[in-house]
């Protein structure tokens, strides 16, 4: 679990091209806060930044150290430390039942099938979701599917949880439930979202624009600046 000292994420001079187009050029960033939000337009680089932090993408130049692990050299150890929640739970859930979905991650960390199954069922039961162990995932609601995705990540005991637009397809009650759940997590959390209200109690918000940091700091100021830019750009539009 998270120790106060190993909560640092350091990007030094990171460059990354996507589809032959440069996105980040010499980006440097230090993140040590417990709750960090990423905002910005579509294509600004939020998802790419999250994918750089969990090693799904590797930088073309520069280095990224996440909780003591260098993403290029120690990529194999990252899944044990960094959990990733995707936008669409349908893409994340690859197994037909809840218990299998949780057990899969545990097996990837080296548990045998029996241990993984027992641990997965116990974890579901501890989170009041014992019913899901043998339920076909197709029968769960969208909110329940996203809940299952989060449990499947938490069961692996990561020290950092990354969320990429996790609530865009969820109704308001589900959103509120998950925000409460996320607020209570002991882990460090970095979340990208277009729903700016969810960042009210975060420690820091970073606005990314065209691969650069447009503003960075307390949620209220950064979000206000982003809103103003949006209003201005609509005003200028033909």
């Amino acid at each position: 679990m998270t120790q106060p000292g190993d909560r640092n994420i350091v990007l030094s001079g990171v460059s990354l091209a996507r589809q032959d187009r440069p996105l980040f050029a010499g980006l440097s960033l230090d993140i040590a806060e417990l709750r960090v939000g990423l905002i910005g337009d579509n294509g600004a680089g939020k998802s790419s930044l999250l994918r750089l932090i969990n090693g799904l993408l590797l930088p073309d130049a520069g280095a990224i150290v996440v909780h003591g692990l260098e993403t290029k050299a120690q990529r194999a150890s990252l899944p044990g430390k960094v959990g990733f929640i995707f936008q669409n739970p349908e893409h994340q859930i690859v197994f037909p039942t809840g218990a299998e979905e949780l057990a899969f991650g545990l097996r990837c960390t080296g548990m045998n099938s029996k241990q993984a199954d027992v641990a997965a069922r116990a974890f579901l039961a501890a989170h009041d979701c014992a019913d899901w162990a043998d339920t076909s995932v197709g029968e769960l609601s969208d909110g329940q599917k996203q809940h299952l995705c989060i449990l499947a990540i938490l069961v692996m005991m990561p020290s950092l949880v990354l969320l990429d637009e996790p609530f865009s397809s969820l109704d308001l009650p589900s959103r509120m439930k998950f925000m409460k759940m996320i607020a209570a997590l002991p882990q460090q959390v970095i979340m990208a979202s277009h729903d700016l209200d969810v960042f009210a109690n975060f420690d820091r918000v970073i606005w990314i624009d065209g691969g650069k940091i447009a503003a960075d700091g307390a949620p209220a100021q950064v979000i206000a600046a982003y809103r103003q830019r949006c209003v201005d750009s609509i005003g200028r539009a033909p």
Binding site: V94, F104, G105, C108, S113, A116
Partner: peptide, 22 residues
């Protein structure tokens, strides 16, 4: 596109980097 998403989901949970053993 679906295959890409599923591959990312598997990758981010460490399937290709660590092997399950039985």
């Amino acid at each position: 596109r679906l295959a890409d998403h599923v591959a990312e989901a598997l990758d981010s949970r460490g399937f290709s980097t660590k092997r399950s053993k039985d």
